[in-house]
């Protein structure tokens, strides 16, 4: 688990939308090589947190730090360059390109030479086990495979933190297992994960730690074995 080094820190992050407090003073940290699950009922503020972390939204108050650096006002592409990778709730591959090209274009964007980019992309595609569909158009492969290709595209730059937004939604049981296995393998190689997911069983199965949000506040932050006993969490979910 965490060796104490912090990959990502959120400090007193608050966000208001036209008078509605979507997030209130949320603070947490993700350690290097840690898998942290972010869960909570609908409207808890999970997406708002992710938007603040990935730089889609920079109008929040509070601070986001990434590997010791304040990135609160740093735009999304620059965060990607610093080593923060992400995937999207609705799988967002480049539909006009093949699966391989999706990954290769990310490798080129990382500034690699043509040959090096090709090699890295092949490696990343193999790593998530999508080699068989590499030459097919991204828009034509099944959703589970799209999610894997998205992960391959995200890791090609060799990030230190991966932010996943509901990577399991809409997947079949076998696909869920595949994606979870890939997350665990990448984590074993040293990549930290912060993921938002509705499939609580999967979150509890592979995360080291979970953070529970409810109505814009953090109500739990601790080991997966304790979350089931926390009174606030039970109240939030059962009403």
């Amino acid at each position: 688990m965490s060796t104490g080094a912090v990959a990502l820190g959120a400090e007193r992050v608050s966000r208001e939308f036209g008078g509605v407090q979507a997030l209130k003073d949320v603070s947490f940290a993700v350690g290097e090589a840690e898998i942290v699950g972010l869960i909570g009922p609908n409207g808890a503020g999970k997406t708002t947190v992710l938007n603040a972390i990935t730089g889609v939204d920079t109008a929040f108050s509070g601070r986001i730090t990434f590997r010791g650096q304040d990135v609160s006002r740093v735009p999304a592409p620059v965060r990607a360059r610093l080593g923060m990778a992400r995937t999207f709730q609705r799988a967002s591959l480049f539909p006009s390109m093949s699966c391989f090209e999706n990954v290769a274009v990310a490798a080129l964007a990382a500034g690699l030479s043509q040959t090096e980019a090709r090699r890295r992309a092949e490696e990343a595609v193999e790593r998530v086990g999508a080699g068989a569909v590499a030459q097919r158009l991204a828009a034509e492969v099944p959703l589970g495979t799209q999610r894997l290709v998205e992960i391959a595209r995200a890791i090609v730059r060799r990030p230190t933190l991966m932010v996943l937004d509901e990577p399991l939604s809409g997947l079949e049981e076998a696909e869920v297992e595949r994606v979870c296995r890939v997350i665990q393998e990448l984590n074993a190689a040293g990549l930290a994960f912060l993921w938002v997911e509705h499939n609580t069983r999967a979150v509890l199965a592979i995360s080291h730690r979970v953070i529970v949000l409810d109505l814009g506040r953090k109500i739990f932050d601790g080991g997966v074995d304790q979350v089931g006993e926390a009174k606030e969490v039970l109240d939030a979910y059962l009403g």
Binding site: T54, V56, P75, A76, P77, V78, A80, R81, A85, R86, T87, F88, S92, L93, F94, V105, A106, A109, A110, R153, A154, R157
Partner: peptide
């Protein structure tokens, strides 16, 4: 969005 996520401005 995806283009930004791979670091393109």
């Amino acid at each position: 969005a995806a283009a930004e996520s791979i670091g393109l401005r």
